[in-house]
């Protein structure tokens, strides 16, 4: 017996049987037990070839290598910085990952990044959930100025960015705001005035709330009163 028990994009819950038989393979958010594939998450069912996946609808961000995240510098030591990015443990940025410029050994590191500074960092190594190394010198990494910092469900980040950055570009164009989205669900918005920043946040909240609805790009472009960019949208992130 080979059988898929739920429909594509159906909401499934932990412990729910998704498929029977050995023809399919469990991927993220699913596991095999005997000849059954079972969901381990609250999310949307997705069948991709032979892979069965559950796209989570919520849940805390878990650090992954190569993720760009927004964080705040908490400590400056002799050999580097520590950055809080919303995970259970802070990440480390070593001296050599701090800047593209040469940092002399006796430099005052707080001249580069001081406690309280908001930064975009890239995770370069996850040893365990406790030991995470990041870089502040890779492309896209930088210090962020004063801005509107909002928290979104990290599972919605791909939708907020959109295919090839289409969604975020649309928001930037329509509101004139500079927007940085961290994979960890932190979004930084900086514009010419409060009204534009609020509009950008409102748009992002709308995407967050309707992340899995069909025709999201059209809805958002209508909301922002702009034409969507010429990019074909794939409904599953």
């Amino acid at each position: 017996m080979v059988n898929i028990l739920v429909k594509e994009r159906e909401i499934v819950v932990p412990g729910q049987e998704l498929a029977e038989g050995m023809d399919y393979l469990p991927s993220e958010g699913a596991f095999r037990e005997g000849d059954k594939i079972i969901s381990s998450k609250l999310g949307l069912f997705n069948l991709d070839g032979r892979l069965i996946k559950v796209i989570p609808l919520g849940g805390k961000y878990i650090p992954k290598k190569n993720d760009s995240v927004i964080g705040r510098v908490t400590d400056v030591g002799f050999s580097g910085w520590r950055v809080d990015f919303g995970w259970a443990f802070n990440m480390n940025v070593s001296l050599k990952e701090g800047s593209r410029d040469f940092i002399p050994n006796d430099a005052d590191l707080s001249q580069y990044y001081a406690p309280g500074d908001l930064v975009v960092a890239k995770i370069i190594k996850v040893m365990s959930s406790k030991i995470i190394d990041a870089s502040l010198k890779m492309p896209g990494c930088r210090k962020l100025g004063t801005g509107r910092l909002i928290e979104v469900e990290s599972s919605r980040v791909p939708r907020i960015i959109g295919k090839q950055g289409s969604m975020i570009s649309m928001i930037k164009d329509a509101t004139g705001c500079n927007v940085v989205v961290g994979q960890n669900g932190l979004v930084w918005i900086s514009g010419s005035d409060l009204e534009n920043e609020m509009k950008a946040e409102e748009t992002i909240r709308k995407i967050e709330n309707e992340a899995h609805s069909e025709g999201l790009t059209d809805k958002i472009s209508a909301f922002l009163n702009v034409k969507p960019r010429e990019i074909v949208e794939n409904d599953i992130q």
Binding site: I70, T74, D84, L186
Partner: peptide, 19 residues
């Protein structure tokens, strides 16, 4: 972000300054 690291909020202060 963990709340204890964001105990100041420049953004709010700047806005308030601008009424």
């Amino acid at each position: 972000m963990n709340d204890n690291s964001s105990k100041s909020n420049d953004y709010v202060s700047k806005l308030i300054e601008g009424k």
